[in-house]
Simulated assay, not measured.
Amino acid sequence: MDAALEVLLSEAAIAVRVRELAGQISEDYRQAGSLLLVGVLRGCYMFLADLSRRLTIPCRIDFIAVSSYGQSTTSGAVRLIMDLRSDIAAQHVLIVEDIIDTGRTLEYLTRLLGARRPASLKTCSLLIKEQSIRRGIRVDYLGFTIPDDWLVGYGLDYADRFRALPYIATLSPAARRTLG
């Protein structure tokens, strides 16, 4: 393993929690008929794949992509890059995120998709940073609360690197400077 990485969540710990989340979601939606999982690209792909394979209820998958800009310096506005391919009206929808950092993306998506009149709209995130909890951001299905560090692995990246790691690790500030 790279010296710049320190494992925060092992592959085994992630697998256990994903199984638990899938069980809870399957139970909650058992009578719903079908569930539409809306994956927020790009970081959600590993989590969404593992979660969807462990669900015991019928589900479909669609994707949405958003871009946050100015988070470190100005407004932190969010804009839609790629919309869903399907109509979600009268469907049970679960937004699936890899990580909730500031909460702005989740707030934006909840407003955007809620206006499309789904039968229900809930949220699922593998990770939430402590700062988002302090801001009052709530998630219906949550994997782990994590410190306000820069994380990589299991879909999370830094400069498009480290996404394919099977675990989640912190990336040291020195490594971030080096990778630019």
Rank of each mutant, 00 (worst) to 15 (best):
G114M: 10
D2V: 06
T105L: 06
R17D: 04
D2T: 12
T178V: 10
E27P: 01
I25Q: 02
I61W: 02
L41A: 12
G180A: 15
H92T: 07
T123W: 02
P173W: 06
V66I: 15
Y158P: 01
S10T: 15
A15Y: 04
A32I: 04
I168H: 00
Q131V: 11
L109I: 05
L51R: 06
D101T: 10
L106W: 05
L5R: 11
F144L: 02
S67W: 05
E11C: 08
T105C: 05
S172P: 00
K122Q: 13
L179N: 09
T102Y: 07
C124F: 02
A169C: 08
L51D: 07
A77E: 15
V16H: 09
V40Q: 07
R54S: 14
S26F: 04
R19G: 12
D149H: 11
G70I: 09
I99V: 15
A15F: 06
V66W: 02
R42Y: 01
A3C: 07
C44K: 01
L5Q: 14
G155F: 00
G136I: 08
A15K: 15
R138D: 11
A90K: 14
P58T: 13
S86P: 00
D160I: 00
L156H: 01
G39R: 02
A119M: 09
Y141F: 14
S68K: 05
V16D: 11
V66A: 11
R42L: 10
Y108N: 09
M82R: 14
T74D: 12
T123F: 06
T170D: 00
A13G: 03
I88R: 06
G153N: 06
E107C: 12
Q71L: 10
A169W: 02
R54M: 10
S26I: 04
Y29F: 15
L37K: 04
R161V: 04
T105A: 07
A159D: 09
D140L: 08
E107S: 14
Q91S: 11
I99T: 10
A159M: 04
I25H: 03
L36C: 10
R53F: 03
R19A: 15
Y167N: 03
T102S: 15
G39L: 04
